[in-house]
């Protein structure tokens, strides 16, 4: 069981959350090229290791949150709100975190 430390509700089981996929993808502008749109919809980085991803706390506060999780070990590296700078949290040596 993966446990995620929801920034709004505290630590909860993964069964309360819905997985939203890669959290580093940025929606292109309306005038972006077809290649940029294709990458946005279909292309994924799919790393073997740290992965920033979106989860929605559907059985809790219903907020979307950002999670940095290792896809090989399931270690939760950092958790933040959608507005938080998750990259800075990953880089923070004192970040703590909840392990799988």
């Amino acid at each position: 069981m993966i446990r995620l430390d929801c920034p709004h509700c505290g630590p909860r089981d993964q069964t309360e959350f819905n997985y939203g996929g890669d959290g580093r993808i940025e929606r292109p502008g309306d005038d972006a090229s077809l290649t940029a749109w294709n990458d946005f919809v279909y292309t994924r980085d799919n790393p073997r290791g740290p992965h920033v991803e979106l989860w929605q706390h559907t059985a809790g506060c219903r907020q979307w949150i950002k999670v940095a999780r290792d896809t090989l070990t399931h270690e939760i590296i950092a958790v933040g709100t959608m507005g938080d700078d998750i990259e800075a949290k990953i880089a923070d040596p004192d970040r703590g975190g909840v392990e799988a």
């Binding site: 069981m1 890669d22 991803e53 896809t71 090989l72 399931h74």
Partner: peptide, 13 residues
């Protein structure tokens, strides 16, 4: 299981 992973083991839910 429903999330990206390279671990060749699954989860209880």
């Amino acid at each position: 299981d429903g999330y990206n992973t390279y671990a060749q083991r699954g989860n209880l839910p």
